[in-house]
């Protein structure tokens, strides 16, 4: 079937099987391999991307279901002015080790900060509670999100504009 998904500001049209999972579409068809997967039961949250701005587990969304919607992945975090404050925060506060859960964690952090410019530690822990990290014990992830909250320019939270169209 035909799907049309806007990913990081670009419209992609593709022919896919109905059972094609969004995470596999992103990784295989678009080669956006920054989105990882870690389980089959939507428990680990490694595959989190933003669907219309909100975190979802892309292993439990069909590419077909995402058709007509916009998706933001880790590759879409960096803007023309450089890294997103969330990306900087993760580096500053050692919020990652093996890097596998990091893209999903950062996207959830981005969505949280878009709604709440000054989240408490409890709110951050709640926001990332659907995502597992085996390396950091979470504290430095919480600190990374706090770092981003404290350093982000309020104006700089717009997502990239929609422009080109590409077929895959």
């Amino acid at each position: 079937m035909q799907v049309s998904i806007n990913v990081n500001g670009t419209d992609y049209n593709a022919e896919v099987e109905p059972r094609h999972l969004l995470v596999r579409f992103l990784r295989e068809d678009l080669r956006l391999t920054g989105t990882h997967w870690g389980c089959d039961t939507s428990n680990c949250g490694t595959c989190v991307v933003l669907l219309d701005g909100e975190p979802v587990k892309s292993c439990t969304v069909l590419a077909a279901m995402a058709s007509g919607h916009s998706v933001r992945t880790v590759e879409g975090l960096e803007g023309p002015d450089g890294l997103d404050p969330v990306q900087q925060g993760f580096m500053e506060e050692h919020g990652l080790q093996c890097g596998f859960c990091t893209p999903g964690m950062m996207l959830t952090a981005r969505a949280l900060l878009d709604r709440n410019h000054d989240p408490s530690e409890e709110q951050i822990r709640e926001a990332i509670s659907g995502q597992l990290c085996r390396c950091t014990g979470y504290l430095n992830i919480v600190r990374a999100v706090r770092w981003a909250a404290e350093h982000q320019a309020r104006a700089q939270t717009e997502s990239p504009s929609q422009s080109e169209t590409a077929g895959v």
Binding site: E54, K57, T60, T108
Partner: peptide, 9 residues
Amino acid sequence: IADPPVRNR
């Protein structure tokens, strides 16, 4: 119920 990303859907 479940977790925040699941509750979004």
